Amino acid sequence: MAIAAATQEIVEAVVTKRHVIWFYIVSSEEIWQQFGVATWRTQQARLVMVLSACFPFALVAAALWWSGALTPQVEWSAGDFFLHAEVDRNGVLSTTLRIEVENRGLAAFTLTDLATEMPGLRFLPADGSKNQPSEVTVHGGDSERLERRVVITDCAAVPHEPQPVRFSYRTWTGSRTTEATWDSWWLQSPEKDVPVAWQRGLVGKVCSEAVNPGW
């Protein structure tokens, strides 16, 4: 801050001017306070403290996720080689789907349930009478196979777009449920193979076999 004053004198018919400037000397703390620098520095310091406190937790969460302890890193595989149409005495059309589960993480997980919600198709729970375990444990870097009966209530109603499969699992961090969309299946044709959603590939083979006169 500065204040200026001007005086004028006439000496031997010559007009002269004199400028006097007074400066107010303030400390740096007062300047910082006036322009909000001190407040900003305080907020910055608080932010650094918060980030420093959260950083270890972020590292732990990243490590758990990468290891598969929070969400398993699963590679699903289900082919149509063993698919066959099955019709019971009540006329219910179904098939047995063989599924391979590969654990690409480090932490083991236990698959406790497998389900899907879509028109015309649903999974049934594991059948103990057919040696289908209700739970399957997959260790890190390993793979396991399981079977599930799939009931087809309406072949035409099954969606053509890929549909997710909901699976429940348990790790040492707790039990959770998540979804995964399986890779497409391929239909063979004279010209080239055509990709289709996994559920359409399934019902395409099973429903065609069920209405085949030879079957």
Rank of each mutant, 00 (worst) to 15 (best):
E144A: 15
V151H: 03
D127V: 07
E30I: 13
A61R: 04
I21F: 04
E179S: 13
D142E: 14
T16R: 15
P56M: 08
W198F: 09
D193F: 15
A78L: 15
V87G: 05
V158A: 07
W185R: 01
A69E: 14
V196M: 04
V150F: 06
H19C: 01
G214F: 15
R98W: 14
G105H: 07
V158L: 10
P133A: 11
V151Y: 05
W40V: 06
G141K: 13
A107R: 10
V14Y: 05
A38N: 12
E191C: 00
P72D: 01
T178C: 09
V11D: 01
W182D: 02
V211K: 11
R18P: 03
Q43L: 07
T110L: 04
L59G: 14
K192C: 00
A53E: 08
A61S: 00
T7N: 08
I99E: 03
D154W: 02
N212V: 14
R176P: 04
E102F: 03
E102D: 05
G36Q: 09
L64K: 09
I10R: 11
F109R: 14
K17C: 00
L202M: 05
V150S: 01
A115T: 06
T178A: 10
V138I: 14
A45Y: 04
E30D: 14
L51M: 13
P56R: 07
W32M: 13
R149E: 04
S134H: 06
L121N: 02
G214R: 15
R46Y: 05
L70S: 06
P125G: 10
L114V: 05
L93A: 03
W198A: 00
P164E: 13
L187K: 02
A107H: 10
P162Q: 08
E86Y: 12
M49L: 13
G91I: 09
R18A: 03
A180T: 08
A61H: 10
V14S: 02
P159M: 02
E102N: 10
A210M: 11
S175D: 14
F55I: 13
T95E: 01
L47Q: 10
M49F: 08
V165T: 09
R46Q: 15
P72C: 06
G140V: 06
V211Y: 00
L106M: 01
P195R: 07
R176C: 08
V138F: 04
A45S: 06
S168G: 15
K205V: 14
G141Y: 06
C54H: 13
T42K: 08
N103F: 03
V165Q: 03
Q199V: 12
T95D: 01
A2F: 02
G79C: 04
F35H: 12
N131L: 11
E135H: 12
A58R: 02
D154L: 02
Y24L: 05
L59W: 15
G79R: 09
L202A: 01
Q44K: 13
E209P: 01
S184Y: 11
V74F: 02
H19R: 03
C155E: 03
N103Q: 06
S184G: 05
A156F: 00
W65G: 06
R166P: 07
T137P: 00
E135Y: 05
P125S: 10
R200K: 13
V92D: 10
Q132I: 08
F82W: 15
V15A: 12
R176S: 06
L106Y: 02
V20S: 07
M49Y: 10
L111G: 07
E75R: 07
N212L: 11
F123G: 01
R200F: 11
E161N: 01
